[in-house]
Computed example of a mutant assay.
Amino acid sequence: MLSIKLKAHEERRLRAGHLWVFSNEIDTGEGFRNIAAGSLCKVFDSRNKALGVGYINPKTLMAVRMLSSNANADINVEWFVGRIKSALALRERLYPTPHYRLIYGESDGLPGLIVDRYGDVLVVQMSTAGMDALKPVVIEALQSALKPRGILLRNDVAMRETEGLPLVVEEIGDVPDTVEIDESGVRFEIPLKTGQKTGWFYDQRDNRDRLSRYVRDARVLDVFSYIGGWAMRAHGFGAKTVSCIDSSAPALDAAQRNAQLNGATLETIKGSALDMLKQLRDQTRQFDVIIVDPPALIKRKKDAEAGLEHYASLNRVAMQLLVPGGILISCSCSHHLELEQLQRVLLREARTANRRLQILEQGGQGPDHPVHPAIPETRYLKGYICRVV
């Protein structure tokens, strides 16, 4: 196995529990750039004390991701089964049925690996060269630990391009086009092969549960609706009407199928979220509850200014569509946007609109997306439930 040596004092973050080593922290020598991306490596500090084992990609800024603090760890099927079973024990404690995010990357000690479970079907995403190189071992370990009917590899995430990997979708075993799940009594048909990311957003489950006290007899608008998660949960809690905005026709078609599954009448509005919100405002439409749950609008730090303005614009028009005393649920999954920044955006837009804002609840990702205490980036989802007077 390769040996990687850090520069003086660059081991402090690893000793505090972090799992990343950046390229400028490594004491590189001749041939460093020629190391095969994804190779396993032992990591040592500047005094040659072992820090653990990880995998390396010399062509990326985040050069090493640690797998174990034991430099003698054998990263084989048995090792992966141990990590998977540890993650499984948590999820089985949390949820009555096998529907959850089973593996959440660094937080479960498996950087670069995401696994969502839909009963006996797994959707797997490997975003790094190191995890991709370990693919046969990972698949064997998942099959050993869970005995799934099928595994869908949704390795079509953009981060793979940064790692020098192709975007591919592969099937192992019997993988259906769709699966059905039950979330608190509401049925959803999930498009595994054509849906966004790994098919469903388990991270918002607990926040969708919070709708119960706000939506009875309400007119509800679900913005960036995808397949209607918020809208259908609102219907299940007694909403009077439910409407969805999304730019994807297939997503809205899937939302309509979910409405049929639940006996709901659903209005779908196809188009850019901001444009459609403005159109509804021009039509003098009003709603009692609006959920603004966009994809990450700040993917890189350099996008922060434009992303903040986009968040501001969306929430500004949403407030204009709310009746006095209406409820705004505003979310962000951009880890570059801090919770306090989102609060400042909401306050500013409320004052601009001459509306009074009351924050009622604060939400984050569910416990099947645990936060690694040494890696703030693993805490990405944030949101506020607000009353706009």
Rank of each mutant, 00 (worst) to 15 (best):
N155M: 09
D156L: 12
V157L: 14
M159Q: 14
R160M: 12
T162K: 13
E163F: 02
E163T: 11
E163N: 08
G164A: 07
L165F: 10
L165M: 12
P166E: 11
P166M: 10
L167D: 08
V168C: 07
V169K: 15
V169A: 13
E171C: 11
I172V: 10
D174H: 05
D174V: 01
V175L: 01
D177K: 06
T178H: 09
V179L: 12
D182R: 09
S184N: 14
G185W: 00
G185Y: 05
V186K: 00
R187E: 03
F188R: 04
F188T: 01
F188I: 00
P191H: 00
P191D: 03
L192C: 06
L192A: 04
K193T: 03
T194L: 08
T194W: 04
G195P: 01
K197N: 13
K197H: 11
T198W: 00
G199E: 01
G199P: 07
W200V: 10
Y202L: 12
Y202P: 05
Y202V: 06
D203G: 10
D203Y: 10
Q204W: 05
R205E: 08
N207P: 08
N207R: 08
D209C: 12
R210A: 15
R210D: 05
R210S: 14
R210L: 13
R213N: 13
Y214C: 01
Y214W: 14
V215E: 00
D217S: 12
A218D: 00
A218Q: 05
R219W: 10
V220L: 14
L221S: 01
D222N: 06
D222R: 02
D222K: 00
V223A: 07
V223Y: 02
Y226Q: 03
Y226N: 05
Y226C: 05
M232H: 03
M232E: 01
R233F: 02
A234K: 00
A234N: 01
H235D: 04
H235P: 03
G238V: 07
A239N: 01
A239L: 04
K240F: 13
V242L: 08
S243W: 02
C244P: 02
S247K: 12
A249E: 12
P250E: 07
P250M: 11
A251D: 04
L252T: 02
D253I: 07
A254P: 04
A254I: 01
R257T: 11
R257N: 13
R257C: 08
N262C: 10
A264I: 05
L266W: 02
L266E: 00
L266C: 08
E267L: 14
I269Y: 03
S272Q: 11
S272W: 06
S272D: 15
A273L: 06
L274P: 05
D275C: 13
D275T: 15
D275Y: 12
